[in-house]
Design a binder for these strands. Structure first.
Length: 111
DNA sequence: CCTGTGACATAAG
DNA sequence: CCTTATGCCACAG
């Protein structure tokens, strides 16, 4: 395990780095943007390796429902939520409120 | 080529 | 709301 390819993962990191402050996006959205809409899991997996990077705000990446599904991969129990709240994002019970308002769509913002 | 894996997504019970 | 199950994909070994 612990893959560390280049192409796909690299792209994931690139997009993740570009997520603006106070914004979030979903694994599916990133995957789709990368051309592998059904590889959302790969995105998450890629984030797994984001530990080695500095500019990868993995906490800004949540599932489609805006739930902090990957919070268990962070050190603390509420670190992820704290980070998001620090950015002005309303998070309740691990779920982002007004997701549409904070959602950062790669297609809309990057293309 | 085949197997295992995974921070998803969706459906079903 | 919960857990399972299935699909799906890219990649490491």
């Amino acid at each position: 395990m612990k893959p560390k390819s280049d192409n796909f993962f690299q792209k994931v990191y690139e997009v993740a780095e570009q997520i603006p402050y106070g914004r979030v996006t979903s694994y599916g959205a990133i995957a789709k943007y990368l051309g592998a809409a059904r590889s959302a899991r790969m995105v998450g997996w890629a984030m797994n390796g984001s530990h080695n990077m500095d500019n990868i705000p993995a906490h800004r990446v949540v599932n489609k429902a805006g739930i902090l599904t990957g919070k268990h991969h962070f050190d603390g129990t509420n670190l992820m939520q704290q980070l998001l709240e620090s950015e002005g994002i309303e998070v309740v019970d691990l779920q982002i409120q007004n997701l549409e308002k904070y959602f950062w769509d790669p297609f809309k913002e990057l293309t």
